[in-house]
């Protein structure tokens, strides 16, 4: 393990640990409104100040991290797996399978998602708890987010299909699913990893934007998405630098993840 990797690991452990220790680190919780100290700058009682409703920003960042750090990667994993299965399989199988899968992918890409999500919201009851709401949202993102990656994977799998090593493997009598799992999928790994890492920040932000449809995390629960959304229209960064903490944290966490994984990749390759 390189120094950078160790450092990145340490950062991740620290962030994850802090988010799970939120109950101790920020005992007042994320919902408590200090209405006489709204929009306050950092102080010894509120390390990152308070938001417009007087809620402790530090607590909100910790609890938001817990939500997003668990759910965004889970959703990214789901969508990446779907993309791998659908795109990878279509490219590998070729012929009618490929045409059918790509037709479905194109259909998925061209669907008016806004309206479908509005419909999804209409089907959900209004009284869902904030936790259920955010879990459902990330699940939706995971289920819906595979299509563009599937096209890339289909193309990659298509070229793998006529590669020497697949021919060699077929000549060795390996076939069908086994060939796909053992010989095609592992070679799609770089594309899959890229897709996974791109998806995480995209999903974190999408979750925030789905708020306008009544999906996503619900008040008063925070998520990185909802915290980042508060940065909209922030003009004077210089005057209130502490408000950028959620953004900085997002960048740090995503980068750390990438360092850890990419180093493993190098060793593996």
């Amino acid at each position: 393990m390189s120094l950078g990797q160790r450092l990145a690991c340490a950062v991740l452990v620290l962030v994850l640990g802090a988010s799970f220790a939120a109950n101790w680190l920020a005992p007042a919780g994320y919902a408590r409104q200090y209405r006489d100290a709204t929009d306050a700058p950092p102080s010894h009682t509120h390390w990152l100040g308070t938001d417009e409703l007087g809620r402790d920003r530090f607590a909100r960042v910790l609890y938001g991290t817990r939500i997003s750090l668990l759910l965004a990667p889970a959703a990214a994993l789901l969508s990446t797996l779907l993309a791998a299965l659908i795109g990878g399989f279509a490219g590998y199988a070729g012929g009618a399978w490929k045409r059918a899968a790509m037709a479905i992918t194109d259909l998925f890409l061209s669907l008016p998602w806004l309206f479908l999500l509005i419909t999804a919201r209409a089907l959900l009851p209004l009284n869902v708890s904030p936790v259920v709401s955010v879990v459902v949202t990330f699940l939706l993102l995971g289920v819906l987010g595979w299509s563009s990656a599937a096209r890339v994977l289909c193309a990659s799998a298509s070229s793998l299909r006529s590669s020497d090593f697949v021919r060699q493997a077929r000549a060795a009598g390996i076939h069908g699913r086994r060939l796909f799992w053992m010989h095609v999928l592992p070679n799609l790994k770089p594309v899959l990893f890229a897709q996974f890492w791109i998806s995480i920040p995209v999903f974190i932000l999408s979750e925030a934007n789905l708020g306008i449809l009544g999906l996503g995390v619900a008040e008063p629960m925070p998520s990185w998405g909802s915290l980042l959304k508060e940065l909209e229209g922030l003009v004077s960064v210089g005057e209130e630098p502490w408000r950028l903490v959620p953004l900085i944290l997002l960048v740090i966490v995503v980068t750390s993840f990438q360092i850890v994984i990419s180093n493993q990749e190098e060793v593996a390759a």
């Binding site: 020497d164 090593f165 060699q168 010989h183 070679n187």
Partner: peptide, 15 residues
């Protein structure tokens, strides 16, 4: 059994 020309491309680089 079959042995192909270019060993490096005939072996799966990911395995």
């Amino acid at each position: 059994a079959l042995v192909l020309q270019s060993p490096l491309s005939a072996l799966n680089p990911a395995l």
